[in-house]
Design a protein around this nucleic acid. Structure first.
Lengths: 312, 312
DNA sequence: TCTATCGATCATGGAACCTGATCGTTGGCT
DNA sequence: AGCCAACGATCAGGTTCCATGATCGATAGA
């Protein structure tokens, strides 16, 4: 049987290709990876011999290099191969840890405040040997990428997930509500304000948050772009500004502190579909008993949340 | 930046792991791959050092070896990584070929007879530089696997596809029909026979065919396992035996020659949902202009098929 | 105990990765 | 035009790792 020369390909050479694409220079790619420029030059030459195509355009002189079309296409495959390898690595580490060990869970603000305290208490009582490591991010897409690369075992997520190696379970529906300063005109209406009425107000928004994207899209569909006067990553900041009369906000219920006397929380009565929060994991990774148990505990707890947020 | 030892992993060592799993022996795996037993022993030892876990159980003496749980899990990742690498290789080859080149298309019998002649004639007229290579299989799952490994660029398939890196487009709905010998009692009924009535007859079936699985499941749901008296891979053989009075069959319309005077074809009036035939490709591969054009041509032709088989 | 069937390890050669030095290409400036 | 700086390619050589062939250790069976 003749060996396929592609199987002799060195994965580090694919990593070099990516570094070159990022840096636009063999020299800086080498520095980033801890090699000499000469090594990187030879790595790419070896890769090009295997592939049979030019992968990098070298214009010569002091100009930056760039990937060819072939190089760009190969790079996409290279990224996926690397992610899969890292997922394998994570599986091996989890297996090594056995029943004890770590469970790395991604989360974001509102989940952190409302679900995690109860969840962690209950899970730790049932599985004292498992250490749950939390990774909070205000940038949701980062969490999903970390799941793909095996850097997180699980993550809370606003469903549906984008195309990729993911599986998920629905936890709860989180309805959008209108948050206005206490005693404001909108809050005194005997009916639910229309989206058009809401869109005329100054709006306090969130950064890099799929929930905010959804709100902006729905408000914009009334024919007028919403007037976002301020953005923050922090739920408390947003609500504080609303309470101070700077503006209003439309946000998922989980992000809102309903006991805050400076604001009034108004049910939008289905004017915007609720977001669905779920738990996501890597479809192709081995699921440890700890991860399975964590998913079950989370589903249980969310099933017993107040009725307006339960998924089942 | 410290290099991750996993990135220094040699893909050929993952291939060796698979060969050992298949053969149950370092020696036979070595022979299959064209190495010595010593090389394979050292490859696995190197792999185990990187992974940090035992991957193969070696009982010693003349007993077969087997993969550990860690080995089995890693092997799943290894398979996916290899498939992805082969898909990359196929993309590079397709890119090298440019506008000319080959388009490898998977197909099965009924598609072959009914759609391909027209399709190939039209496509060749429009794209004379593209050579379409057909691969017919009576085992459908083989076609999809070849798409994943970049061995086929496209395949006809009975939708939906299983989970995996696939994308597809619906081409046509192919209704199930009852095929009975000409002049038979079932054919003389003034109404559509029930599934229960059909299930009481001797049935001629297909091998390894999702359509047949569907029929058997539906017939079995009447409470009685269908009496399959003969199976064949060949549409013509099945129909010939029906015409000869050996039994009847329930089959997708595309597999049936309606002009055959020895049989009668009876519409089942929705008693079994029609199968949906589509065209499938690898979601993560680069789509060449030729492949794009082939998909378009196929969709066009199927849109203009007789009404009872059109999808749109 | 002996034999056969295994995989592990040893000694060694060859291939490939990597470093450091040098050469060739290009643009910009004087 | 000449010089300089910023690049990547190539060369020479050292190190690491892959693979072969021989030998050793483990196990089952007669």
């Amino acid at each position: 049987m003749e060996p396929d020369r592609w199987l002799g390909l060195d994965l580090r050479h694919l990593v070099a290709l990516k570094a070159i694409a990022d840096e636009g220079s063999f020299g800086r790619a080498a520095e980033k990876l801890g090699y000499t420029q000469s090594a990187v030059s030879q790595q790419i030459a070896a890769l090009e011999r295997i592939v049979g195509l030019r992968l990098v355009e070298r214009p010569g002189g002091p100009r930056p290099v760039s990937l060819t079309e072939a190089g760009e296409i190969l790079l996409r495959h290279a990224d996926a191969i690397q992610a899969r390898l890292l997922a394998a690595k994570a599986d091996m580490k989890a297996l090594e840890a056995g029943d004890a060990g770590r469970l790395r869970v991604g989360t974001f603000q509102s989940v952190g405040v409302r679900i995690l305290p109860t969840l962690l208490r209950r899970f730790s009582e049932a599985h004292p040997a498992v250490e749950v490591l939390l990774r909070e991010s205000s940038d949701e897409s980062e969490l999903l990428e970390m799941v793909e690369r095996g850097e997180l075992d699980l993550t809370f997520w606003t469903l549906p997930t984008p195309p990729g190696p993911y599986e998920s379970v629905e936890l709860l529906h989180d309805p959008y509500v209108l948050v206005v300063p206490a005693g404001s005109p909108l809050g005194s209406l005997k009916r639910t304000p229309t989206l058009k009425e809401i869109g005329l107000q100054p709006i306090i928004g969130f950064n890099k948050c799929s929930a905010m994207d959804e709100v902006e899209a729905r408000l914009a569909s009334t024919g007028r772009a919403p007037n976002i006067v301020f953005r923050s990553d922090n739920n408390g900041t947003v609500q504080g500004l609303v309470g101070a009369g700077v503006g209003i906000t439309v946000a998922p219920l989980l992000t809102v502190d309903e006991d805050d006397p400076s604001v009034e929380v108004i049910d939008l009565q289905g004017r915007i579909d609720p977001r669905v929060i779920g738990l996501v994991w890597h479809a192709d990774r081995h699921r440890s008993p700890a991860a399975e148990a964590f998913v079950e505990s989370t589903v249980d707890i969310c099933r017993n949340l107040p009725a307006e947020t339960a998924a089942a």
